[in-house]
């Protein structure tokens, strides 16, 4: 198959409920496309309150990009717009646009269900469903109408291995996920998030409730996963941002202050605000 991804082939996020063949990233997206996700003069409102004031940002594929900035600056809000999770909150409104791989995610032809299946999300507080470990991972497939037992089994193993959890839980797949440790639960949530083979993985402070050992495991995992996924991670931990991400965006009061290679942001930021935040003088 050619690499001509601008051809007439339907865009991945427009694939609707009926599960097509397992979608392979390499079919369509060339390695590290520089403007994979494009945020274009994006404003966001909770009711009348504007919390994002015209963000412009281009995020490359198959890289880890971290969002940093003081509390309340709008990192989560922007992150939750990529898979339109904010639409669950009544009274929200946006201006501007976000495109993924050239298609606006707000385009009427984009089904929000399909969009969310293409974008995995990991939340700050791990939130496995109150069902078995196995049930958690196959949930995204079952709701997509996938019932083939061997396919489900295979997915469970693949995802648990990717999430570095397989060896720890392979003997108790059918026990409740609520019996896992905090760190295991969060890795289970990562496994669940990648079960439907998304292209993008959004992580909102995924380690903030974990101890240093569990955090180290999740960080290793993130670095491992970036070969296959475009990862955006919100973090308050500067060291984490510098350890796992190649690109860093610094937000302040609803504005994007600086976006550059992580190395540059942490050693030689071009804006004073960034430097002050990184060195801990405010925020």
């Amino acid at each position: 198959m050619s690499n001509d991804y601008t051809s007439s082939e339907a865009h991945p996020i427009q694939v609707s409920h009926e599960t097509a063949r397992p979608y392979e990233l390499s079919d369509v997206v060339p390695p590290s496309e520089t403007n994979f996700i494009k945020v274009d003069d994006f404003r966001f409102f909770y009711g009348k309150k504007e919390v994002l004031h015209g963000i412009n940002l281009e995020i490359p594929s198959r890289r880890v990009t971290s969002f940093i900035g003081p509390s309340g600056c709008g990192k989560s809000t922007l992150l939750r717009n990529f898979n339109r999770m904010n639409e669950l909150i009544p009274g929200v409104r946006h201006e501007g646009d976000i495109t993924i791989h050239g298609t606006s995610i707000f385009d009427p032809s984009v089904e929000v269900i399909a969009l969310r299946r293409r974008i995995g999300m990991v939340f700050q507080k791990s939130n496995p469903f109150p069902m078995s470990i196995y049930g958690n991972i196959v949930y995204p497939l079952r709701i997509a109408g996938q019932g083939d037992r061997s396919m489900l089994d295979e997915t469970v193993e693949r995802c648990l291995r990717s999430a570095a959890l397989w060896d720890e839980v392979k003997d108790r797949l059918h026990e409740s996920a609520l019996g896992l440790s905090g760190g295991q639960m969060q890795r289970l949530c990562i496994a669940r998030a990648i079960a439907s083979r998304p292209e993008i993985l959004l992580m909102d402070e995924p380690c903030s409730a974990l101890d240093p050992i569990a955090t180290a495991k999740v960080e290793e995992l993130i670095i491992e996963l970036k070969r296959d996924f475009t990862i955006i991670i919100v973090t308050h931990n500067m060291h984490q941002a510098s350890r796992v991400s190649e690109l860093t965006a610094f937000f302040y009061l609803g504005n994007l202050v600086e976006f550059d290679e992580t190395r540059k942001i942490f050693t030689n930021p071009s804006k004073l605000q960034t430097e002050e935040y990184i060195t801990g003088r405010f925020g």
Binding site: R116, F123, N127, P140, A193
Partner: peptide, 11 residues
């Protein structure tokens, strides 16, 4: 958080 998790995977 259960609802978020479910909507988050496209339910």
């Amino acid at each position: 958080s259960y609802r978020e998790a479910s909507y988050g995977v496209g339910a």
